[in-house]
Design a binder for these strands. Structure first.
Length: 278
DNA sequence: AAGACGAAAGTGGTTGA
DNA sequence: TCAACAACTTTCGTCTT
Protein backbone atom coordinates (compact mmCIF):
# COMPACT_ATOMS: atom_id res chain seq x y z
CA UNK A 1 0.00 0.00 0.00
CA UNK A 2 1.26 3.39 -0.88
CA UNK A 3 0.40 5.75 1.85
CA UNK A 4 1.94 8.62 0.01
CA UNK A 5 -0.76 8.46 -2.64
CA UNK A 6 -3.16 10.46 -0.54
CA UNK A 7 -0.73 12.80 1.09
CA UNK A 8 -0.46 16.41 0.17
CA UNK A 9 2.85 17.73 -0.99
CA UNK A 10 4.17 21.23 -1.02
CA UNK A 11 4.27 22.07 -4.72
CA UNK A 12 7.64 23.76 -4.33
CA UNK A 13 9.61 21.24 -2.38
CA UNK A 14 7.76 17.94 -2.39
CA UNK A 15 7.51 17.75 1.37
CA UNK A 16 4.41 16.19 2.88
CA UNK A 17 2.52 18.96 4.54
CA UNK A 18 -0.75 17.49 5.73
CA UNK A 19 -3.30 14.78 5.34
CA UNK A 20 -6.24 15.42 3.13
CA UNK A 21 -9.63 13.86 2.38
CA UNK A 22 -9.33 11.06 -0.15
CA UNK A 23 -11.39 12.57 -2.90
CA UNK A 24 -10.51 16.23 -2.84
CA UNK A 25 -7.30 17.69 -4.11
CA UNK A 26 -5.88 20.92 -2.80
CA UNK A 27 -5.74 23.75 -5.23
CA UNK A 28 -2.51 25.58 -4.70
CA UNK A 29 -3.00 27.70 -7.75
CA UNK A 30 -5.61 29.75 -5.99
CA UNK A 31 -3.29 30.45 -3.13
CA UNK A 32 -0.49 31.38 -5.46
CA UNK A 33 -2.65 33.83 -7.31
CA UNK A 34 -3.84 35.46 -4.14
CA UNK A 35 -0.53 35.88 -2.43
CA UNK A 36 1.94 35.77 -5.25
CA UNK A 37 4.32 33.93 -2.96
CA UNK A 38 3.57 30.30 -3.57
CA UNK A 39 1.82 28.12 -1.09
CA UNK A 40 1.18 29.54 2.35
CA UNK A 41 2.30 26.32 3.99
CA UNK A 42 4.35 26.79 7.10
CA UNK A 43 7.21 24.38 7.24
CA UNK A 44 7.98 25.16 10.81
CA UNK A 45 4.70 23.73 12.07
CA UNK A 46 4.23 20.01 12.30
CA UNK A 47 1.10 18.71 10.69
CA UNK A 48 1.79 15.29 9.27
CA UNK A 49 -1.28 13.27 10.08
CA UNK A 50 -2.45 9.79 9.45
CA UNK A 51 -3.63 9.35 5.90
CA UNK A 52 -5.56 6.16 6.26
CA UNK A 53 -9.28 6.44 6.64
CA UNK A 54 -10.37 4.36 9.59
CA UNK A 55 -13.80 3.79 8.04
CA UNK A 56 -12.21 1.99 5.14
CA UNK A 57 -10.88 -0.69 7.42
CA UNK A 58 -14.27 -2.37 7.71
CA UNK A 59 -14.14 -3.42 4.11
CA UNK A 60 -11.01 -5.48 4.60
CA UNK A 61 -10.70 -9.09 5.68
CA UNK A 62 -9.88 -9.60 9.39
CA UNK A 63 -6.23 -10.45 8.91
CA UNK A 64 -5.48 -7.48 6.73
CA UNK A 65 -7.54 -5.28 9.01
CA UNK A 66 -5.46 -6.39 11.95
CA UNK A 67 -2.28 -5.68 10.09
CA UNK A 68 -3.56 -2.35 9.01
CA UNK A 69 -4.48 -1.27 12.54
CA UNK A 70 -1.02 -2.24 13.66
CA UNK A 71 0.43 -0.20 10.84
CA UNK A 72 -1.72 2.76 11.81
CA UNK A 73 -0.72 2.50 15.44
CA UNK A 74 2.88 2.25 14.44
CA UNK A 75 2.81 5.23 12.10
CA UNK A 76 0.91 7.29 14.67
CA UNK A 77 3.52 6.53 17.29
CA UNK A 78 6.23 7.33 14.82
CA UNK A 79 4.50 10.52 13.84
CA UNK A 80 4.01 11.86 17.32
CA UNK A 81 7.61 11.06 18.25
CA UNK A 82 8.73 12.74 15.10
CA UNK A 83 6.47 15.72 15.69
CA UNK A 84 7.94 16.17 19.13
CA UNK A 85 11.44 16.06 17.77
CA UNK A 86 10.57 18.43 14.98
CA UNK A 87 8.92 20.88 17.31
CA UNK A 88 11.90 20.86 19.59
CA UNK A 89 14.26 21.34 16.66
CA UNK A 90 12.16 24.19 15.27
CA UNK A 91 12.39 25.87 18.66
CA UNK A 92 16.15 25.62 18.57
CA UNK A 93 16.20 26.85 15.00
CA UNK A 94 14.15 29.83 16.10
CA UNK A 95 16.72 30.64 18.77
CA UNK A 96 19.70 30.44 16.43
CA UNK A 97 17.88 32.46 13.79
CA UNK A 98 17.11 35.28 16.19
CA UNK A 99 20.73 35.41 17.32
CA UNK A 100 21.97 35.85 13.76
CA UNK A 101 19.02 38.10 12.84
CA UNK A 102 17.65 35.89 10.13
CA UNK A 103 14.30 37.01 8.71
CA UNK A 104 11.15 34.90 8.59
CA UNK A 105 11.77 33.70 5.03
CA UNK A 106 15.10 32.22 5.98
CA UNK A 107 13.68 30.60 9.09
CA UNK A 108 10.99 28.96 7.00
CA UNK A 109 13.51 27.69 4.49
CA UNK A 110 15.77 26.35 7.23
CA UNK A 111 12.78 24.55 8.75
CA UNK A 112 11.91 23.06 5.40
CA UNK A 113 15.42 21.73 4.92
CA UNK A 114 15.46 20.40 8.47
CA UNK A 115 12.21 18.53 7.92
CA UNK A 116 13.64 17.00 4.81
CA UNK A 117 16.80 16.03 6.67
CA UNK A 118 14.72 14.27 9.32
CA UNK A 119 12.71 12.42 6.72
CA UNK A 120 15.88 11.27 5.07
CA UNK A 121 17.21 10.07 8.39
CA UNK A 122 20.17 12.39 8.38
CA UNK A 123 19.98 13.27 12.04
CA UNK A 124 20.79 9.79 13.24
CA UNK A 125 24.29 9.71 14.67
CA UNK A 126 24.59 13.49 14.63
CA UNK A 127 23.50 16.15 17.03
CA UNK A 128 20.21 17.87 16.32
CA UNK A 129 21.97 21.19 16.98
CA UNK A 130 24.52 20.69 14.25
CA UNK A 131 21.92 19.65 11.68
CA UNK A 132 19.67 22.56 12.58
CA UNK A 133 22.56 25.00 12.40
CA UNK A 134 23.59 23.56 9.04
CA UNK A 135 20.07 24.03 7.68
CA UNK A 136 20.10 27.62 8.85
CA UNK A 137 23.50 28.27 7.31
CA UNK A 138 22.37 26.78 4.00
CA UNK A 139 19.12 28.75 4.03
CA UNK A 140 21.04 31.99 4.58
CA UNK A 141 23.21 31.24 1.59
CA UNK A 142 20.19 30.40 -0.55
CA UNK A 143 18.75 33.82 0.15
CA UNK A 144 22.06 35.48 -0.62
CA UNK A 145 22.31 36.74 2.89
CA UNK A 146 25.23 34.59 3.95
CA UNK A 147 26.43 34.36 7.53
CA UNK A 148 29.91 33.17 8.34
CA UNK A 149 30.42 29.66 9.67
CA UNK A 150 31.55 31.25 12.91
CA UNK A 151 28.38 33.27 13.38
CA UNK A 152 26.08 30.34 12.84
CA UNK A 153 28.26 27.94 14.82
CA UNK A 154 28.30 30.35 17.76
CA UNK A 155 24.54 30.79 17.68
CA UNK A 156 24.16 27.04 18.09
CA UNK A 157 27.05 26.60 20.47
CA UNK A 158 28.95 24.22 18.23
CA UNK A 159 32.33 24.60 16.61
CA UNK A 160 33.05 25.84 13.14
CA UNK A 161 34.61 22.64 11.92
CA UNK A 162 31.65 20.52 12.91
CA UNK A 163 29.25 22.95 11.27
CA UNK A 164 31.25 22.93 8.06
CA UNK A 165 31.29 19.16 7.99
CA UNK A 166 27.58 18.89 8.69
CA UNK A 167 26.75 21.45 6.02
CA UNK A 168 28.62 19.51 3.38
CA UNK A 169 26.96 16.32 4.53
CA UNK A 170 23.44 17.77 4.42
CA UNK A 171 24.03 19.38 1.05
CA UNK A 172 25.37 16.18 -0.41
CA UNK A 173 22.59 14.01 0.97
CA UNK A 174 19.78 16.38 -0.01
CA UNK A 175 21.40 17.17 -3.31
CA UNK A 176 21.52 20.89 -2.65
CA UNK A 177 23.94 22.85 -4.77
CA UNK A 178 24.46 26.54 -4.37
CA UNK A 179 26.20 29.11 -6.49
CA UNK A 180 29.35 30.45 -4.88
CA UNK A 181 28.67 33.40 -2.63
CA UNK A 182 29.31 36.75 -4.22
CA UNK A 183 31.87 38.61 -2.08
CA UNK A 184 29.80 41.79 -2.41
CA UNK A 185 27.08 40.31 -0.24
CA UNK A 186 29.41 40.64 2.74
CA UNK A 187 30.34 44.26 2.17
CA UNK A 188 27.53 46.10 3.89
CA UNK A 189 27.62 43.86 6.92
CA UNK A 190 31.36 44.12 7.41
CA UNK A 191 31.40 47.83 6.64
CA UNK A 192 28.70 48.55 9.20
CA UNK A 193 30.53 46.65 11.88
CA UNK A 194 33.66 48.62 11.07
CA UNK A 195 31.86 51.97 10.82
CA UNK A 196 33.03 52.58 7.28
CA UNK A 197 31.49 55.23 5.07
CA UNK A 198 28.96 54.60 2.32
CA UNK A 199 31.55 55.68 -0.24
CA UNK A 200 34.00 53.05 0.92
CA UNK A 201 31.27 50.47 0.59
CA UNK A 202 30.33 51.39 -2.96
CA UNK A 203 34.00 51.62 -3.91
CA UNK A 204 34.59 48.17 -2.51
CA UNK A 205 31.66 46.74 -4.44
CA UNK A 206 33.01 48.29 -7.64
CA UNK A 207 36.40 46.73 -7.05
CA UNK A 208 34.80 43.38 -6.37
CA UNK A 209 32.87 43.59 -9.63
CA UNK A 210 36.11 44.12 -11.50
CA UNK A 211 37.77 41.30 -9.61
CA UNK A 212 34.87 39.04 -10.47
CA UNK A 213 35.21 39.81 -14.16
CA UNK A 214 38.91 39.11 -14.06
CA UNK A 215 38.27 35.79 -12.35
CA UNK A 216 40.24 36.72 -9.27
CA UNK A 217 37.62 35.28 -6.99
CA UNK A 218 36.97 31.71 -7.99
CA UNK A 219 38.17 29.17 -5.51
CA UNK A 220 38.96 31.87 -2.97
CA UNK A 221 37.02 32.53 0.17
CA UNK A 222 34.52 35.30 -0.55
CA UNK A 223 35.00 36.74 2.95
CA UNK A 224 38.70 37.11 2.26
CA UNK A 225 38.15 38.91 -1.01
CA UNK A 226 35.49 41.16 0.50
CA UNK A 227 37.69 41.96 3.48
CA UNK A 228 40.63 42.83 1.23
CA UNK A 229 38.48 45.13 -0.91
CA UNK A 230 37.26 46.89 2.21
CA UNK A 231 40.76 47.25 3.60
CA UNK A 232 41.93 48.73 0.32
CA UNK A 233 39.04 51.18 -0.05
CA UNK A 234 39.27 52.26 3.56
CA UNK A 235 42.93 53.11 2.95
CA UNK A 236 42.10 55.06 -0.20
CA UNK A 237 39.34 56.98 1.52
CA UNK A 238 41.49 57.86 4.50
CA UNK A 239 39.52 55.88 7.01
CA UNK A 240 42.04 53.18 7.52
CA UNK A 241 41.28 50.12 9.63
CA UNK A 242 43.98 47.69 10.65
CA UNK A 243 44.17 44.31 9.01
CA UNK A 244 43.47 42.78 12.40
CA UNK A 245 40.24 44.73 12.86
CA UNK A 246 38.96 43.69 9.47
CA UNK A 247 40.16 40.12 9.81
CA UNK A 248 38.26 39.82 13.08
CA UNK A 249 34.98 41.14 11.72
CA UNK A 250 35.25 38.85 8.70
CA UNK A 251 36.43 35.94 10.86
CA UNK A 252 39.45 35.22 8.72
CA UNK A 253 43.16 35.89 9.27
CA UNK A 254 45.32 38.87 8.43
CA UNK A 255 47.37 36.67 6.12
CA UNK A 256 44.38 35.98 3.90
CA UNK A 257 43.58 39.69 3.71
CA UNK A 258 47.18 40.42 2.74
CA UNK A 259 47.16 37.82 -0.01
CA UNK A 260 43.88 39.01 -1.54
CA UNK A 261 44.90 42.63 -1.08
CA UNK A 262 48.18 42.07 -2.92
CA UNK A 263 46.33 40.39 -5.77
CA UNK A 264 43.87 43.25 -6.05
CA UNK A 265 46.65 45.83 -6.13
CA UNK A 266 48.60 43.89 -8.74
CA UNK A 267 45.78 42.77 -11.02
CA UNK A 268 43.71 45.93 -10.98
CA UNK A 269 46.66 48.33 -11.14
CA UNK A 270 45.59 50.20 -8.07
CA UNK A 271 49.02 50.84 -6.63
CA UNK A 272 49.31 54.33 -8.13
CA UNK A 273 45.86 55.37 -7.03
CA UNK A 274 46.67 54.27 -3.54
CA UNK A 275 49.92 56.26 -3.48
CA UNK A 276 48.20 59.42 -4.70
CA UNK A 277 45.65 59.18 -1.93
CA UNK A 278 48.24 58.96 0.80
C1' DA B 1 55.29 50.20 19.96
C1' DA B 2 51.95 48.99 16.66
C1' DG B 3 51.07 47.51 12.30
C1' DA B 4 52.36 45.37 8.03
C1' DC B 5 54.89 41.94 5.64
C1' DG B 6 56.24 37.38 4.19
C1' DA B 7 58.15 32.72 4.97
C1' DA B 8 57.38 28.22 6.75
C1' DA B 9 54.83 24.56 8.52
C1' DG B 10 50.35 22.61 9.53
C1' DT B 11 45.13 21.66 8.68
C1' DG B 12 41.29 19.88 6.25
C1' DG B 13 38.92 19.44 1.96
C1' DT B 14 38.94 18.24 -3.10
C1' DT B 15 40.34 15.77 -7.04
C1' DG B 16 42.06 12.40 -9.98
C1' DA B 17 44.77 8.19 -10.71
C1' DT C 1 42.14 4.52 -1.28
C1' DC C 2 45.92 7.40 -1.54
C1' DA C 3 48.78 11.18 -3.08
C1' DA C 4 49.03 15.66 -4.96
C1' DC C 5 47.10 20.06 -4.64
C1' DA C 6 45.03 24.66 -3.50
C1' DA C 7 43.37 27.71 -0.04
C1' DC C 8 43.61 28.99 4.47
C1' DT C 9 45.54 29.25 9.28
C1' DT C 10 49.07 29.69 12.83
C1' DT C 11 53.25 31.29 14.19
C1' DC C 12 57.08 34.02 14.12
C1' DG C 13 60.99 36.98 12.73
C1' DT C 14 61.73 41.27 10.35
C1' DC C 15 60.74 45.65 8.29
C1' DT C 16 58.03 50.18 8.28
C1' DT C 17 55.51 53.93 10.18
Amino acid sequence: MRISKEEVYCPNCGIVVEDFPMDSKPDYKEDNEKTGYGSPVKHSTTSIGSVIKYTDLGKLDPKTRNNMSKLIQWTNKLNTAMERNLNFAFGELEKYASIIHAPEQIKEEASRIYREAVQRNLVRGRSMESIAAACLYIACKEFESPRTLDEVADSAGINKKELGRTCRFVMRELDISLAPVNPSSYISKFANKLNLSQKTQTDAVKILEKALKMDLTSGKSPQGTAAAALYLCALMNKEKRTQREIADTASITEVTIRNRYKELLRELNLRDRLRKNK
